[in-house]
Simulated assay, not measured.
Amino acid sequence: MALVNEIPDGTDSGVFAVRTHTSTYLLDLGEGTLLRAPGVGRHDDEVWEVSELRRDSQDIPLLEVRSCKVGDPAQFWVSAADDPDVRTWRITTPVIEIEKID
């Protein structure tokens, strides 16, 4: 396990834990999944509120990591778990830490 500053463009393998001001995201690039754990790892910063999103705490299909860098909001392109034709962006609060797990 190692801390990294970003997930480089084109990365297509590996497992990453991405901690933001309000949640922790688990990305499995090899499997193409994204899981959001709202409130987990929350930063002690009262400015940010934890939002509830559809499919929180469930794996959803991850199509692309558009950007994921410490200090900036991450952008994930995902499809709906129940309808693969429905696609949307998940944009996070600023990233605090990225850990490469595998």
Rank of each mutant, 00 (worst) to 15 (best):
V50W: 07
R87H: 05
V70W: 05
I98C: 07
D72G: 00
V65I: 07
T24Y: 07
G14M: 00
D45A: 01
G41D: 10
E64V: 09
D56E: 15
P61H: 04
G39C: 11
D56F: 13
S51A: 14
G10N: 08
S67V: 02
Q58N: 13
L34G: 02
A81Q: 05
D82H: 07
P84K: 11
V50N: 11
L27C: 06
A81R: 07
N5F: 06
K69M: 14
E46F: 04
R36C: 13
H43G: 01
L3E: 15
S57K: 07
L27P: 00
T33E: 02
D59I: 01
L3T: 15
D12M: 14
E49K: 04
Q58Y: 08
S57Y: 02
D44Q: 15
V15M: 04
E99A: 14
D72F: 00
L3W: 10
T33S: 06
R42N: 06
T88G: 14
T33N: 05
L35T: 06
T24H: 07
E64A: 15
D44L: 15
N5T: 11
D9F: 00
S67P: 00
T93N: 12
G14W: 00
D56R: 13
P94Q: 05
I98R: 05
A2F: 07
I60Y: 03
G10K: 08
D28V: 04
V50E: 10
T92S: 15
Y25W: 15
D82C: 09
A81P: 00
A81W: 02
R66Y: 03
E64H: 13
S79K: 15
S67E: 10
L62H: 02
H43W: 11
I60H: 04
R66A: 02
R42A: 14
L34Q: 00
D72Y: 02
R42Q: 11
P38M: 03
V40S: 11
I60T: 04
R66C: 04
A80F: 11
M1D: 07
P8T: 05
C68L: 08
E6S: 12
I101D: 03
V95C: 03
D59Y: 05
D45G: 00
P94D: 04
A80M: 14
L63D: 10
